[in-house]
Write a protein that binds this DNA or RNA. Structure first.
Lengths: 215, 215
DNA sequence: CCAGGCAAGATTGGATACAATCTTCATATG
DNA sequence: CATATGAAGATTGTATCCAATCTTGCCTGG
């Protein structure tokens, strides 16, 4: 025990999981009283965590009516991915020339994690490691605000992205792309890196859009 | 009277003003108890408003130590403006071809407001009208998430930008640029619009960076 | 003189209680 | 039958109170 962190931080992490896992379904109202007690806290830290998520667009807020899990339309999805491409292209453009050999070794280490997780069909481990891989690359840009914005865009679609990693074919494809990406990074080929990242995004946008269209 | 809004919204607006006007100085701690009572509310709505500002990067938060008004370094400023250019270029690229004649009339109306405010040396009116002008343009993109991100970047430098409009020479320059911009919009010249917006940004970044360097 | 530690005060974090608002549903009314 | 009304219940919004943590400054011991 004795997590020296605050309850709002704990609650925020929990909420992200609940949303990303779909336990809290898109469109659903977040009833503060029941959720707070189910998390073992009062409504105060829960409300503060919800305000953070509101700022990230993960939930919407209507005064006196409460918070609702954000429900992405196809238009929203397209917009999020367009914004991602603007921001990620920049992060790569700036970051790749700054990559040290150690950075690339580190990226390869993470890549092993991704592949190990893929091997054992552990979807949530794949998701986590994949995220680490891409953000290790983005962070090479040394632009913390930019990286934070990219994170927000990723989070916005987390509730839908899980399905992508469920299919083994997608996993193989992803691993292939990652390896090609590392090759491009090693030769510090900015344009190729950007193109590969773009292709990577396009794959998931098409899959996620089908999930959204479904219901 | 009977503003049916919530206290947290009111407080949020007040806080923005306090920060933009420099009443709350960069780096300064936000003491919740005194600020809350000076605003006539309890700490709860204040804390929720502060969470929103934290998400926008207007204040920083350290658990058990509190909120501090964000203090931009030169590197932060450069990053904010680089991000702005990525996002604003896109908004213009998408929005300009969609502009209706009515939209442009509306923009010219706002432009009159800006010039009237400039004439009467009303710095805060200039700031407000100038913002309306640019965001009316950005909103033509029909990309609400993109517009919101741009807003955040503007807010991040609001505490410093006031000085730009204080000098009459800058005001003349700005009006000139605005008029040229409207001409470019009328001919739906995307590239020229982007270039003009970029020049506009460059002016203020150089001025603001001097303000930051000073202390 | 300086480093470390300890106690008092200040400040933030969170739980509870109550007020304000919204939602629902039964009832009345045209 | 459709619509308005209004009261009860549900839910959110905020104030207050107490607990937890941090800061400050004094004191001690070296």
């Amino acid at each position: 025990m004795s997590e020296s962190v605050t309850a709002q931080e704990t609650v925020l992490r929990e909420l992200r999981l609940l949303i990303a896992s779909g336990t809290l379904e898109p469109g659903q109202q977040v009833v503060q009283d029941s959720l707070a007690s189910s998390l073992g806290v009062s409504r105060v830290p829960l409300r503060e965590a919800l305000k953070v998520l509101e700022g990230e667009g993960q939930v919407t807020y209507h005064p006196h009516r409460g918070y609702f899990v954000a429900d992405l339309s196809i238009e929203d999805l397209v917009e999020v991915y367009r914004i991602r491409s603007l921001l990620e292209d920049e992060a790569i453009r700036v970051g790749v020339p700054l990559l040290t050999d150690e950075d690339i070794e580190y990226l390869e280490d993470i890549l092993h994690d991704v592949e190990a997780a893929a091997q054992s069909q552990d979807v949530s481990a794949v998701t986590a490691a994949n995220r680490r891989f891409h953000f290790a690359l983005f962070e090479a840009s040394n632009m913390p605000r930019l990286v934070r914005l990219i994170k927000n865009q990723w989070d916005a679609t987390d509730a839908y992205r899980g399905v992508y990693f469920a299919a083994p074919a997608n996993l193989d494809h992803m691993n292939q792309e990652h390896r090609t990406m590392v090759q491009a990074l090693k030769s510090r080929d900015v344009e190729k890196s950007i193109a590969l990242q773009a292709a990577h995004r396009e794959n998931s946008v098409s899959v996620v859009s089908q999930v959204i269209k479904k219901p």
